[in-house]
């Protein structure tokens, strides 16, 4: 069956919907667009879509990646136009690629994501210096603890998952660019990395104030898009 890779953005009001709601919204959009979506077999058929990485609620994504199968070929341009006309505000198709039938799922190859994280001046009680970031990156270990599904605290070292971290701008607060390991092998969340950085810098920042945008998803050094 023809398979397409859809690069899309999830912004504005759409950033507030969960991954499950996104799946529902896309299925409905494709039905409105009259696209020949393929359904899974079985008692409870669902559209054959697979996503590179669910985006947490509240985070914007500029180039998210999903694969979808159709029962009949649709010209790429046509697919993008029809879907764009049927997507709710905040969701938009940027590009459609054809993917070989036997190509691995996007989730299987994903290993890195780039983020922009912004903090308003009001929410940053003290300036963060470049050298502090460099110092942080020079650490051998960055331990963070997270409550697991069983309710127990788990401590792990996220340093190997922080690939890049740099200050991009100091206009109206602080804007940073991050590259983090993402995917099944290792997964570091941007607010985790930022919380660890501010803890190291001794600046009390409420992580809920971080405005996060996922810029791009990568498989190795090449973008999934």
């Amino acid at each position: 069956m023809p398979r397409y890779r859809i690069i899309y953005s999830k912004r504005g009001p759409a950033r507030y919907i969960s991954h499950l709601d996104l799946v529902r919204a896309l299925e409905r959009s494709m039905r409105r667009a009259g696209l020949p979506i393929a359904f899974s077999e079985g008692f409870n058929p669902h559209p054959r879509m697979s996503f590179a990485a669910p985006l947490p609620v509240g985070i914007e994504g500029l180039a998210e990646v999903m694969d979808v199968e159709m029962t009949a070929p649709v010209p790429r341009r046509d697919l993008a136009d029809r879907l764009n006309a049927a997507l709710p505000p905040g969701l938009a198709v940027k590009e459609v690629l054809e993917v070989a039938d036997n190509a691995p799922a996007p989730m299987a190859v994903l290993d890195k994501a780039a983020y922009i994280v912004h903090l308003d001046a009001d929410d940053l009680p003290a300036p963060l210096f470049e050298c502090t970031v460099e110092e942080f990156l020079a650490l051998d270990k960055v331990e963070v603890s997270r409550r697991g599904k069983n309710g127990r605290e788990k401590t792990r070292d996220i340093r190997p998952g922080i690939i890049k971290m740099e200050v991009q701008s100091r206009v109206c607060g602080l804007t940073m660019r991050l590259e983090l390991k993402t995917g099944s092998a290792m997964n570091v969340r941007p607010e985790e990395a930022m919380t660890a950085l501010f803890r190291h810098a001794g600046i009390p920042v409420d992580p809920v104030e971080l405005e996060i945008t996922r810029m791009k998803l990568f498989a190795g050094d090449s973008g999934l898009d």
Binding site: G12, S18, D21, R32, V57, P88, P89
Partner: peptide, 19 residues
């Protein structure tokens, strides 16, 4: 509103922008 929506359980309830 954006700042507030980051602090609530289901921000989609208040964001509007539905089809």
């Amino acid at each position: 509103l954006e700042k507030i929506l980051r602090r609530v359980q289901k921000p989609g309830r208040y964001a509007g922008g539905e089809w």
